[in-house]
Design a protein around this nucleic acid. Structure first.
Lengths: 101, 101
DNA sequence: TATGTGTTGACTATTTTTGTCAAAGGTAAT
DNA sequence: ATTACCTTTGACAAAAATAGTCAACACATA
């Protein structure tokens, strides 16, 4: 289910770190990290950033995944999720344009 | 700021209902409806549906606006909001496709 | 003055999220 | 079989976010 969790688990393994060690290094309880990697709990943005640094991975991409997952969570079981995303996108683009001035 | 709030306020006025009456008919406190219309508090989906019915308005469109606003709220101040939306969209499309089978 | 309008803020209750902890079960090595 | 790791689980408490209640205010108008 959780793409972000899977990715972060793979990155951790590639970095040769155990759950315990990764948890310690990022000041978080092991059990929580375990749950997060398996999608049982949501990541926080701060933790994603910490882990990205620890694993020397691309933080931006991970944050994008994090946000995307957050958004999808809000839309689960919604009939008009896709339409809502499109409206949101339009508004965000408009806002970005306006802010540029 | 709040498009949904503005829309619902306009719809209420077009329906010739006062805040108090609309609130009573939807079983909600007046103060909350007032705040919601002005974007000071978030709408709930249930309330949006109730109001749509009361105002005889297109519920689907209002729900889409509601969801879109919810999503944008999550992404405010995020540098990669737009990118996140695109990723979310892609995944949602994929999921929808898969569920079809 | 009396009635109807919308707004505000203080407060409580409830729900959700987050964090802590102890223990279980697995594997591997010695 | 005990030691030393690993990950997972669940129970619980703390904290934060959300939702709901209520009384009063300011304004307009009949």
């Amino acid at each position: 289910m959780s793409t972000l969790g899977l990715k972060l688990r793979e990155l951790r393994e590639q970095a040769g770190l155990s759950l315990r060690k990764a948890a310690m290094r990022t000041d978080i309880d092991v059990s929580i990290l375990s749950k997060m990697e398996r999608g049982e709990r949501k990541f926080s943005k701060e933790l994603v950033l910490k882990l990205a640094e620890l694993y020397k991975a691309n933080a931006d991409k991970l944050v994008i995944d994090f946000l995307s997952e957050k958004v999808l969570y809000e839309l689960e079981d919604e009939d008009f999720g896709l339409e809502a995303l499109k409206v949101a996108e339009k508004q965000l683009k408009y806002k970005k344009d306006k802010d540029k001035k």
